[in-house]
Deep mutational scan, measured.
Amino acid sequence: NLYFQGLKYMVPGARVTRGLDWKWRDQDGSPQGEGTVTGELHNGWIDVTWDAGGSNSYRMGAEGKFDLKLAP
């Protein structure tokens, strides 16, 4: 699974964008943008601060869902 392989790169400072299971509307800005991981992966959740200004926790394994992917 590509998403599980990418988890080791989901570290503080990593750049991310919305992924396969995104369901959080425009939390990442409008139009959709990139963000920066600000915390360690914990119980399948990870913290992100978006360039647009907001921050929140997103699923990276929790509930079998992956809200994020590494930015290109």
Rank of each mutant, 00 (worst) to 15 (best):
Y9E: 12
L70D: 03
E40S: 12
W45F: 05
P72T: 12
V37S: 01
G39W: 03
P31A: 09
V37E: 01
G61K: 00
G61S: 04
G53H: 03
G33H: 07
F66C: 11
H42A: 10
G44L: 03
Q27E: 13
E63D: 12
L70C: 14
S30G: 15
D26F: 07
M60H: 05
R18Y: 07
G54P: 06
L41R: 07
D51P: 00
A14W: 03
D51H: 03
E34S: 12
N43P: 03
S57T: 11
G19K: 06
R15K: 09
R25V: 11
P31N: 09
G6V: 14
D47V: 13
F4D: 15
M60D: 01
Y3H: 15
L7E: 08
V16D: 01
A71N: 06
W24A: 07
W45S: 00
D51F: 03
P72M: 11
N1A: 09
F4G: 14
K65F: 08
V37A: 03
D47I: 13
L68H: 01
G61I: 02
G29L: 05
S55R: 13
K69H: 10
Q32W: 11
S55D: 07
A62F: 14
V48Y: 00
N56P: 03
A14P: 01
Y58Q: 04
V11P: 06
A71S: 12
Y9R: 08
V11G: 08
T49M: 13
Q5Y: 11
E63V: 04
E63F: 10
M10L: 13
L41I: 12
S30E: 11
D21S: 05
T49W: 08
D21R: 04
P31C: 14
M60L: 07
V37D: 01
L20F: 12
L70T: 06
P12E: 12
Y3N: 15
A71W: 07
T38N: 07
V37H: 01
G35N: 01
W22M: 05
G53N: 03
L20M: 12
D28A: 05
G64A: 07
A71D: 05
W24Q: 05
T49C: 15
G13I: 02
R18V: 07
G53F: 02
Y3T: 14
F4A: 13
D21C: 06
T17V: 14
Y58S: 02
D51V: 04
I46G: 00
G6T: 15
K23C: 15
G33Q: 09
G64C: 15
D67P: 01
Q27S: 07
D51W: 00
E63W: 08
R15P: 01
P31L: 08
W24L: 05
V48H: 01
P12C: 15
H42Q: 13
E63T: 05
E40F: 14
S57E: 08
V11A: 09
T49I: 12
G54I: 10
G29N: 06
L41P: 08
K69T: 12
I46F: 01
G54T: 10
K23I: 14
F66E: 03
E63I: 03
N1R: 09
G35S: 02
F66S: 03
L2A: 15
L68M: 01
A52C: 15
D67R: 00
E40C: 15
M60Q: 02
L41D: 03
T17K: 13
H42S: 11
L68E: 01
V16A: 01
G61N: 03
Y58I: 03
E34W: 14
L20P: 14
P31K: 07
M60G: 02
G29F: 05
Q5A: 12
L68F: 02
V48D: 00
G64H: 06
V11H: 09
K23F: 07
S57D: 04
G61A: 00
K8I: 13
G19E: 04
A71I: 13
L7I: 11
Y58P: 01
M10H: 03
I46H: 01
